Measured scan of single mutants.
Amino acid sequence: MIINNLKLIREKKKISQSELAALLEVSRQTINGIEKNKYNPSLQLALKIAYYLNTPLEDIFQWQ
């Protein structure tokens, strides 16, 4: 199972779901689904999230 800290990191950086979704060219619902662990992002999307949040990938997504 993958645990993610996306919501915590996104809120710490004061970025809304809508703003992050626009940067990543995905829907706000996609961001919401990832934050709620409804599904895991593709590797490409995970890397883009880490890039736009300027945060190491392993700080956002962790195996458990």
Rank of each mutant, 00 (worst) to 15 (best):
L23K: 12
L45S: 03
L43W: 13
K38T: 14
S42Y: 05
K48D: 07
A22T: 12
S42L: 04
I3P: 05
L6I: 05
K12Q: 14
A21K: 02
Y52W: 11
Y39H: 10
Q64D: 15
E19M: 12
S16W: 03
N32H: 13
K12N: 12
Q17F: 04
Q29C: 09
A21Y: 02
T55Y: 07
N4H: 03
M1E: 05
I34Y: 04
R10C: 04
S16E: 06
L6Y: 00
L45W: 03
E25M: 10
E19R: 13
W63N: 04
T30F: 12
L6K: 00
Q44L: 12
I60D: 00
L45H: 03
I9M: 07
A22V: 09
A46S: 06
S27M: 04
L20K: 00
F61G: 01
L57W: 05
L23Q: 12
S42V: 04
Y51I: 08
T30H: 09
E25Q: 14
L6W: 00
L6P: 01
E19G: 11
M1P: 13
Q29V: 12
A21T: 03
N37C: 08
E35V: 01
P41W: 03
E58T: 10
Y52S: 07
L45T: 05
A50H: 03
K14P: 04
N54L: 06
L8Q: 15
L53G: 00
K7R: 15
L24M: 07
A50P: 00
E35C: 02
N4W: 02
K48C: 07
K36Y: 08
E11M: 11
A21M: 03
V26F: 02
L23M: 14
L53K: 00
Q17H: 04
P56Y: 06
K38I: 14
I60A: 02
Q17E: 06
R10M: 08
T55D: 03
I15L: 11
G33L: 14
N37Q: 09
I15V: 11
Q29N: 14
L6N: 02
G33E: 15
K14D: 12
A46D: 00
K12L: 13
I60T: 02
Q62A: 10
I31T: 02
N5Y: 06
D59N: 10
I2Y: 12
T55R: 05
N32Y: 10
L24C: 09
R10T: 02
T55C: 07
N54C: 08
R28E: 15
L43D: 05
E19H: 13
M1G: 06
I49L: 07
S18W: 15
Q17M: 08
N4E: 02
P41E: 01
I60G: 01
I60F: 03
L23H: 13
K48Q: 11
